[in-house]
Design a protein around this nucleic acid. Structure first.
Length: 273
DNA sequence: CTCTGCCGCGAAACCTAC
DNA sequence: GTAGGTTTCGCGGCAGAG
């Protein structure tokens, strides 16, 4: 069985998680499932199943005016019977066809106090207009950010990015004790606390060191420059380079050029000699 | 100032061991 | 069945970019 996406299976068949076959210390931050190669090389459209999954996975969340909650429960998604058989022969196919049927019904109270001005029809109120504006996206059925692997839609680019890690198997957060890797920092912290009894020393809301993750291969770097250099050399066509701020791009281009220029001048001088 | 990306909390869903 | 660990994602708050 190929080491498919590191996702949970819904079919009750095999009881072992696919990614258990590979030690976490090996897959960790750079592990790309074998079957993902085609996904990275080919446009995702080629690999994803068309048909029912798109309507089922994506924009069903967030009914406008839905009850009391900010995030209304998703409409029931169609069952995909072929999924149960798919795992054995083609794991990543199964992963992509995996119905995303979670209903995350979250009853939050919003930011309420006496001085709030901006109120949503769902009852939530906000001090700032922009917070309300963003909240209104939750009620929008059309999800702006769609996963190219499974067609599931998200309101936030970061939510999509985070979701895509479930398909790519990139797990940037690594336990230093047992080398198990996680897709999210809070998962790692939960693991550390429960399994190793290690309580993180961060103060409430204290910013931690940001981890710069290459979403193409899972490479992690300590700085944005570091990641830029990696992507520039390893994935020249990556969208990351296009999205990189002009400031940083210019800075890095200068850094890249200067050693070259020095080399070229040196070689010229050597040539003169 | 607004927009957007990111962080992290919290909780549901899921999995496995007993 | 249930307990405990893990995975996944909704969403509020924050900060940097434009």
């Amino acid at each position: 069985m190929p080491k498919v996406f590191l996702v949970k299976r819904r079919s009750p068949g095999v009881s072992v998680r696919s990614w258990d076959e590979l030690p976490d210390d090996k897959r960790a931050d750079t592990y790309i499932p074998v079957s993902l190669g085609c996904l990275l090389r080919d446009p995702p459209e080629d690999c994803r199943s068309d048909g029912g999954s798109s309507s089922g996975c994506s924009s069903s969340a967030g009914e406008p005016g839905g009850a009391e909650s900010s995030s209304s429960p998703r409409a029931p998604e169609p069952e995909t019977p072929e999924l149960h058989d798919a795992e054995g022969t083609d794991g990543h196919l199964a992963a992509m066809q995996r119905p995303v049927a979670r209903s995350k019904i979250k009853f939050t109270t919003g930011t309420c106090n006496d001085s709030v001005i901006h109120k949503c029809h769902c009852g939530k109120s906000y001090r700032l207009q922009r917070m309300l504006n963003r909240h209104l996206k939750c009620h929008n059925q059309e999800k702006k950010h769609v996963c190219t692997f499974c067609d599931k839609g998200f309101n936030d680019t970061f939510d999509l990015k985070r979701h895509i890690r479930t398909h790519t198997g990139i797990r940037p957060y690594k336990c230093e004790v047992c080398y198990k890797a996680f897709t999210q920092r809070c998962s790692l912290e939960s693991h550390l606390k429960k399994i190793h009894g290690v309580q993180q020393q961060y103060a409430y809301k204290q910013r931690r060191d940001k981890l710069y993750v290459c979403e193409d291969c899972g490479y992690t770097g300590p700085t944005q420059e570091d990641l830029y250099l990696h992507v520039n050399s390893a994935h020249p066509g990556s969208t990351f380079l296009k999205k990189t701020s002009k400031k940083l791009a210019a800075l890095m281009q200068n850094k890249l050029k200067s050693p070259l220029q020095e080399n070229s001048t040196l070689s010229k001088e050597e040539g003169k000699k």
